[in-house]
Nucleic acid binder design. Structure first.
Length: 226
DNA sequence: AAGTGTCTCAACCGCAGCCGC
DNA sequence: CGCGGCTGCGGTTGAGACACT
């Protein structure tokens, strides 16, 4: 009877399914409520994190593209460790993902880059927390453009194009990966996420009994289990 | 093949800001 | 206006995967 004991650690497939279902019903802004009514014994924070970083259907998976990497570099130079803000400029990427990416890939590059720089006494902005401590922004941007021959205009063009490509066939892309059948089905039927979130308004009417929720999700289990 | 080191990424924690009462 | 609850953000951790010896 330890029902009140909060669960921690990795999420199970079943928990994922339950969470998706409840987010579907109540929207993605009422985490505490979802945590309570879902019976997951997780905190609202935990539910939100799981959704945002893993279950959200718009998420891209896999390696960062060179364009994304450049954008991360440029935005980090501009904003510092404002990961969520940076993430908003990279559709399908989460703040957590970018944060991790920065720590691993970029830091690694920084170390490599640092070696020759240490001889010149120049400080790499990779090592900084961003604009406050880094070299002047102009210098950094110039550094990128000189080094890569790739301007921010080019980057934004790429992003615009990739967004166009990405957003429209998103369902297809997403379905190619081990993705959520349910949401793909929803999207195929032109149900946008905005409209799903608006379902919140009718939440009280739409509350499904738990058993019904599960059976609904048996339909789309494969994407979660792989 | 086994042991060890390194890397990756999901998840947790603490804090700050926002909002309703 | 102050308080309490909730959400979101950034930093950190740790388990599992992978690479190397």
């Amino acid at each position: 009877m330890e029902q009140n004991e909060l669960r921690k650690g990795p999420w199970t497939d079943q928990e994922d399914m339950i969470l998706i279902n409840f987010v579907h019903l109540f929207g993605h802004r009422r985490w505490d409520y979802i945590a309570k009514v879902s019976g997951l014994n997780r905190t609202g924070k935990s539910c939100r994190l799981r959704w945002v970083n893993y279950l959200h259907p718009g998420l891209k998976r896999g390696k960062m593209t060179p364009q994304e990497e450049r954008l991360v570099l440029e935005l980090h130079a501009k904003w510092g460790n404002r990961w969520s803000r940076i993430a908003r400029k990279l559709p399908g990427r989460t703040d957590n993902e970018i944060k991790n990416y920065w720590r691993t890939h970029i830091r690694k590059k920084a170390q490599e880059k640092k070696k020759p720089m240490s001889r010149t006494g120049k400080v790499s902005f990779y090592d900084t927390g961003g604009p406050n401590t880094a070299a002047s922004e102009g210098e950094k941007s110039q550094e990128f453009e000189d080094e890569k021959g790739y301007s921010m205009d080019d980057i934004w063009k790429d992003i615009d194009m990739s967004e166009e490509k990405m957003i429209k066939p998103l369902t297809a892309n997403y379905c190619d990966q081990d993705c959520c059948n349910i949401f793909c089905h929803s999207m195929e039927k032109d149900i946008s996420w905005d409209s799903l979130w608006k379902m919140e308004e009718d939440e009280s009417k739409m509350f499904l009994p738990f058993n019904q929720s599960i059976s609904y999700f048996e339909y789309g289990t494969s994407y979660l289990t792989g």
